[in-house]
Each structure stands twice: as structure tokens, then as C-alpha cells.
Design a protein around this nucleic acid. Structure first.
Lengths: 339, 339
DNA sequence: ATGAAAGCGCTAACAG
DNA sequence: CTGTTAGCGCTTTCAT
């Protein structure tokens, strides 16, 4: 059973003071005599008093908690984001409540409800793959609770956003391939209904255009997972043995491709240079180590939560929403190293 | 600015009922007439009423929140554990507050304080590498707040625990190395203040003993991270070129070692066979794929949180603490494949 | 410089 | 069946 927890009342009783005096002494109110303050604070320490945040929240109509909704915590990208969020939030005296949608709409709606019930002071959201209705997020707006979308943003709701520039990332990747001498560059892409997929394809195309390399639609393949790579890589390279560069929409696809190329007797990077996108820790572990576009999850987290605090702690509900675009950077490793 | 949030008072006013009637109607109290119930519940939905969990918590002296303290969320193992915890907790109507100690004692103490202030109903903890004093955890016990340690448990505090049998896991790993013909097996270990480190070392020792291989303390190195591996592997193998088997305390160390051995011109598994511990997704990506001990993070999470709920929802503060031991299994891959 | 009292949202005796 | 009221821990006027 939970024991009785120490309250200001207990301190007041022991010191024969009123609760209001204790409350003020605890927060260094100027009205309170220094001797009284000393006494109260010492007693609080001695009794291991911890303020009851629920009482405080009820009184102040402020929970000092922010909510986070993400698809899955077990993805390196999302856990990095959370890490960034928590570091900033705890420094500013806020707690963080993390909810996983597990990529389902229903669960996401429940998450939103839970955060609403907890009266969070703000929310950070990266939407699930299966979310097409956004009413559960509008509830936050209606209640005046600030919301910031990051990475997988919600196109229909105008609010603060933090995204990375996929187009630029892809451009950097393909430009790098061109500069090290690749002439025939293929793009293993994700389905084009995803915004990130569109951006990355666009960057690929722009790089080719800028360096006067003809664009061939046959060189864009829907192949965005380890499984698809296992299936599609060999047939493709049989038909197009001249390909000497590959830009994959994510790291796991890139790594799988490298493993298959290796079995085909093609050397990476000598015969085919490979660039991925994402930079989880896997890129370092792959053999050869994978050149990739760094996604900066931690930074996305810190930026997003900073936006949120701007809104939370600003009294006027100014509607000047911002979108922070984080520019990804190219991390060169062995999969594109040619002397 | 946060808008006024709907309360039962608002519902009561609109329906010209008392708050108590509304309160009871909302939770299907048998005293309330079915017509009144219908009316109230409809109005609640219409006004988008969400119960204020802070008020509820204050009233009931129960936050419906459990706290989790882990070293770092960005580790696959820990994020799997959290995933398991959250799935169960949300099903039972609890919120989860995740805190990272970032492997520092100071931060861990702050985490514990934050959870205390939030009046969590229970805590799940995996201690940081740098924690040697456990008073901050004793506070929970003193307040009657149940605590369950998992994986990195606290030896000094008697309470529920969920661990994997590190000794058995390590034994399986080393036995496997011996069976494929390794004669000189080194153990890259974690600091011995962690129980898991002790267990894994013990398993290593038992396997050697059982197969009549002499134990040489020089063959146990403190090396439990990618960084340390980069630093210590080469000097070690220069002094001990005869080593033909390696058991690392975790996968990332094992993988880093394989990469370095490769550069040294030593072939894995032919010259040196390698086994890791943990089985994150990296083990599959490594070249060669890494034989390892499966750690079952998700299962540890669900088991730990189940223990916690047993205690939270049991009125009598029964002190019959249990320790759940999860038996790890060996997953054989290419890093130990010798024909 | 300190205290009394109201009230944040909700539940649960107790009273009708 | 429904209403009144007290109180959870805390802050904050308003008195003194």
C-alpha cells in the first residue's frame, strides 16, 4: 500500500505554522522571514518532502508535461528524436509522456485522448502511416494546446513543423555519386504516395539534370526494403550491368543491395558505388561502411521541442507558425570511396 | 493560451443536474436512471469532455502512471523493453513516464525525484553503469511505491526482479565456441559492478571449467563498447595472436571487434570465431552475420510490468518478492560457422 | 511577516 | 434516484 506522502500540511504542523507560510517559504517568497524560510526548508528536506505535481497542476491549470506521439519507439530515428526531446524538456522542468501509435490510426486517436486527459501543455507528433483523418489533432488546437509536427507532418493542419529537406538530401547523395565518377546511377525508391519518397526522387532528378545526365525512368525502381532488395537487385543488374552507382531511399535497402552485389561478384565501391539515406547505426556496421545522408533525429527532437516551448510559454496565442527545415548532410564512408 | 477545458461542472450546468449526478452517470453508477445516463453521456461526447486525470489522481491518491528509468532510450534493447511495457500499461489504463539516466548517477537521482513528485503508482528500473548508491530507490520503497528492477538490477534492494540468466547465456555462447574447436577464448567484459557483467563472466568461466580449459585472467578485458573495442582490440591481439575465439558482452562490441580483426587480416570465423550478446537487428547486418545470445527485450518489459501491476493492485503490501528469470537462447550465425 | 479561506476538478459519504 | 458537501495538496488573494 502507498504510504502517506509528506505534504506542506505535515511541515506546517510540525513547525506550528500555517500552510500558506510554508508554501511561500518553500518558494522563497520575499514576504517570509529568513529564519522561517531556513526552518521550513530544512524540515522539508528532513521529511523528504516532494511537491505533489498533480495538486500543482490542478491549481495552476498546467501539467508541466508534454506529450509525444510517434509510430514506433524501436526505430533508431524515433528514439533519437525522443532523446533530444527529453534532454531539453527535463532541463526546463517538464515531463515527457511518450505514446506509440504502432502505425495504426485507432491507437493514435487513443494516444491523443490520453494526452488530452492528462492535460498536457503541448504535443509533438509524427503521424502514423495509416492516418488520413486528422480530427484527433484538431482537438488540441481547439483547446489551445500547441502542437508541433515533425518528420511525418500533417499536411492539413497549419501549425509549427520540423522537417528535413529530403530533396536536398537526395541531391547531395546523387551529386556525390556523380562527382566520384558514376555515369549510370539507379534510384531504389519508396512508393510515391509518401512525401519523403517524392522529395528524394525529385532530388535524384535534379542532380542528374544539373550535371547533364539523361534521366531514364527505368532507372527508378520501387525497392525500399531488405526483402524487396533481395528480390529485385539481381534481375535488375542482369539487365543493366552497366550501372555503376546506386542511391537507395533508405539504409537497410542500401545495405541489402551491397550484400547481394557482393555475391554477384560486383565490388562496392569499385564497380558500383552505393549511397543510402537515414544513418542509423547500421551504416557504420555494414561492410563496406555505408555513405549515407544523416537524418539528425536528435536535432529534430530538440528543434521541435523548442518550437513547442516558444508557444507554451508565450502568453499571446500568436498564430505565426514556422516550419523549420533541417538540412541533411552527406556522410562519406567506404561505399563510395574511390581514389 | 490554453482554453477553458470542459469539466463535469459544464455538463451539469447545461443539463441542470448536480456534478455528483454527472460524475456517477459518466461511470455508469447503478443509482442513476438510464435516461439521465444517456443524456449525460451524450452531452459529454458533444462537449468533448475528457476527465481531468490530475484531479482524479489528487482525489484518489493514485496517478495511474508508472515510471520507467533506463540508461538510454536509443539502445535497441531498452526501446524494446519500453515497447513491451507500454503495450501492457496502456491496455490497463496506465500512462508511462519514461526517464533516461544517460548512464549517470546524478541524472538517475533526478529521474527518481521527478517520478516521486509525479506520484507514480510504481516504477520500473534498469540502473545506470555509474550507480553505486541506491538511496534514491529506497525512497520508493519507504513510500510504499512498488519497484521492479529489470536486467540491470540493484543487488542491495530486495524487491521484484526480471532478469535474463546471463550466466546461462554466457555459458551457451562459450560452450558453442568450444564445441566448434576454439581453444583460446577471450572475454570482452563490462565493468564488474553491473550484475549482468558478473553473470556473463561467471558463465564464461563455468564453460571453460566444464570443458577443462584453463582460465587466464588476462583473457578477460574491460571492453564493452564500440569505442573501447577500437582502442583495445589491436593491442590485445598483438600480444595474444593465438586467440581463436571471442565472447563479447554485447553485440556492438562484438561487431566492432570483427571489423577490426578483418583489417588485421584475421578472418572471422576461420581464424577467430566471435559471439555477441543481445541480438539487436545489427547482428544480422554485420559481416559475417553475428552469432549471439537472444535477449528478448519486449518479453522482459511485459514480464516486469506485470509484476508491477500485481503489486500495485494488491492491497496488502505482501513482501513476497519474486524474481523472474528469462532464459536466453543461442542464435547461431556465420561468425561461428566452421565446417 | 503570517494566517484564513477559497478554489482548481473530481469522488464519495451522507442526506434526502 | 439525485443533491449537498467535504476534501485530496497546493497557491493566492485578502485580511490582520
Amino acid at each position: 500500500m502507498k504510504q502517506h506522502q509528506v505534504t506542506i500540511k505535515d511541515i506546517a504542523k510540525e513547525l506550528e505554522l500555517s500552510v500558506s507560510t510554508v508554501s511561500r517559504a518553500l518558494k522563497n517568497h520575499p514576504d517570509i522571514g529568513s529564519e522561517t524560510k531556513r526552518l521550513v526548508q530544512e524540515k522539508a528536506r528532513q521529511l523528504k518532502y516532494e511537491p505533489n505535481l498533480m495538486a500543482l497542476g490542478l491549481r495552476k491549470n498546467k501539467s508541466n508535461t508534454i506529450g509525444v506521439i510517434i509510430p514506433e519507439i524501436v526505430h533508431h530515428f524515433f528514439s533519437s528524436v525522443i532523446s533530444g526531446i527529453e534532454d531539453i524538456a527535463y532541463d526546463r522542468g517538464y515531463n515527457v509522456m511518450v505514446c506509440q501509435s504502432n502505425e495504426t490510426f485507432e491507437r493514435e486517436v487513443m494516444n491523443a485522448q490520453a494526452l488530452l486527459s492528462n492535460r498536457v501543455d503541448g504535443v509533438l507528433v509524427s503521424i502514423s502511416k495509416t492516418t488520413f483523418n486528422f480530427d484527433h489533432f484538431r482537438n488540441f488546437i481547439d483547446q489551445g494546446i500547441p502542437i508541433v509536427f515533425f518528420d511525418r507532418i500533417c499536411p492539413d493542419i497549419i501549425t509549427d513543423r520540423v522537417i528535413i529537406d529530403d530533396e536536398v538530401g537526395a541531391f547531395l547523395a546523387v551529386e556525390h555519386l556523380i562527382r566520384i565518377g558514376c555515369k549510370k546511377i539507379v534510384h531504389f525508391a519508396a512508393p510515391q504516395n509518401l512525401l519523403i519518397a517524392q522529395g528524394r526522387l525529385a532530388g535524384y532528378q535534379r542532380a542528374l539534370r544539373q550535371y547533364n545526365i539523361p534521366y531514364d525512368p527505368h532507372f527508378v525502381l520501387h525497392c525500399d526494403s531488405r526483402e524487396l532488395a533481395l528480390e529485385k537487385t539481381i534481375p535488375f543488374f542482369n539487365i543493366h550491368p552497366e550501372v555503376d552507382g546506386l542511391f537507395a531511399v533508405n539504409d537497410s535497402t542500401a545495405i541489402a543491395v551491397m550484400q547481394i552485389l557482393n555475391k554477384l561478384g560486383k565490388q562496392v565501391p569499385k564497380d558500383v558505388a552505393v549511397v543510402g539515406f537515414g544513418d542509423g547505426p547500421n551504416a557504420l556496421i555494414a561492410v563496406p561502411s555505408l555513405t549515407t545522408i544523416e537524418q539528425k533525429g536528435y536535432e529534430i527532437g530538440t528543434e521541435a521541442v523548442s518550437f513547442l516551448f516558444d508557444k507554451i510559454e508565450k502568453e499571446n496565442n500568436s498564430e505565426n507558425f514556422q516550419t523549420k527545415v533541417i538540412f541533411p548532410t552527406l556522410v562519406k564512408r567506404d561505399s563510395t570511396k574511390r581514389n
